[in-house]
Design a protein around this nucleic acid. Structure first.
Lengths: 228, 228
DNA sequence: CGATTCTTTGAGTTAGGTCAACGGGGGTGG
DNA sequence: CCACCCCCGTTGACCTAACTCAAAGAATCG
């Protein structure tokens, strides 16, 4: 937990929050790294784009996420960040971040925790995309996002959880085409497992969804737990 | 750069190095997190295994790598680590790591740099596996490993670079079957681009290999540059 | 209310997987 | 030093999951 003094120092160092309409870029791949960013509200996605236009969504960010950091010495962003909903983002100059890290150990620990957690989330997506079939990939993504959005695992059945997903976004995150995503969503719907309609996910059968997505035991905490 | 005092403190805190024969596990998925580990010599792979036996190789580690860290509060390993060659590994108790981080800012910065770099490498693999075809995936992996092993980009043509890869390992890293990896390697060989024979890679046509793998500009430093 | 983007579905195609068989290399134990 | 064995690599034939292309309907947003 950060001390009141640390929080005050953070308040002093950060810039004014920026309101971003849905669909706007926070930063683009190849742009110079400027500030670290704190997501206050809304959803943001991080994606890597190939020269031919295909893109891989690396992560979906929920409020509270810290992003925009690159390894020291890395001058440009390796990926782009784009708001999926209207979003509020608060920049923090890298130099101030560095100062805060060294001044407040609790703050430093939290940064490290965040980066490690993000790496673990990407690793799990890699495993899913590399090894699982289309149905499991879609199921896994829906389960992850519902669990993270609700901060709860397993997800509560019947509740409509707002998620700003389109079939194209699901495809870009899972390595599938939007058409095939549509077919997989139909299967999940017809089997009474989970439904995605009008940007809302309803989990009908949490047990079967978990069985399909089959998230590795022991990592579930990363979806639902806050920072220590 | 870390100060002499910091290096001394590190020397004092670490345990005695452990020699691992090729094929042995450093730790297994699901085991409790114990020490952080420093790879002194040899190659190690990090992999996530699914219940049905399929596995995704997340990263290949080269000497100097720091691994075995998990987000604070995460009790068990989300992946396994296995030596691909005879390897020398030096454990560092987590508690000592924590102390060193807070006592020596340069040390702390280097840890953060390492984790961020590792996350960037995994993200790039995710993009490759999710979006590129089989030939490009294999080309990308060979290029990455040759560049990292030689600390040099683009790779020097004609030089035989030792890599402990089997077709199965390439398949597990790229999401392909060993049979299809064999077909892709044949294509790369027949086209005079790159050859893998007897655990040695020879890059024949660096320009075409780079064009095929098409690594995002600006990330190349992560393959060939040392820590700042 | 028009335009645009998103979703859905169908039909045909293909990249990569599966299965099977064989050959080679390297390590091990006699 | 040799023989065996096991794993690895290679190739071919066939199969199927996912892609492509096309077209029509449904949401969403000025």
């Amino acid at each position: 937990m950060r001390s009141p003094e640390a929080l005050l120092a953070l308040e002093t160092a950060r810039r004014r929050p920026i309101a971003l309409p849905a669909g706007t870029a926070v930063y683009r791949q190849g742009e110079p790294v400027q500030d670290a960013l704190n997501l206050i509200s809304g959803w943001v996605m991080l994606a890597q784009t190939l020269p031919d236009g295909r893109r891989q969504i690396l992560r979906f960010l929920l409020p509270g996420a810290l992003f925009g950091l690159m390894p020291t010495g890395q001058a440009t962003h390796s990926h782009s960040a784009e708001a999926l909903t209207p979003a509020l983002v608060c920049p923090l100059p890298l130099e101030a971040l560095h100062r805060l890290r060294h001044a407040w150990p609790g703050f430093d620990d939290r940064i490290l925790w965040t980066i490690e957690r993000d790496a673990a989330l990407i690793a799990e997506r890699l495993t899913t995309v590399g090894q699982r079939d289309a149905l499991a990939r879609v199921a896994h993504l829906l389960l992850e996002l519902v669990a993270r959005a609700q901060r709860r695992f397993p997800p509560e059945p019947g509740r409509a959880v707002p998620v700003p997903l389109t079939n194209r976004l699901i495809g870009d995150a899972t390595g599938l085409t939007p058409e095939h995503v549509s077919r997989m969503l139909r299967t999940l719907r017809e089997q009474g497992i989970v439904t995605l309609l009008h940007r809302r996910v309803v989990v009908q059968d949490a047990a079967r969804l978990v069985a399909l997505a089959d998230p590795p035991k022991g990592l579930l905490g990363l979806w639902s737990d806050p920072a220590p």
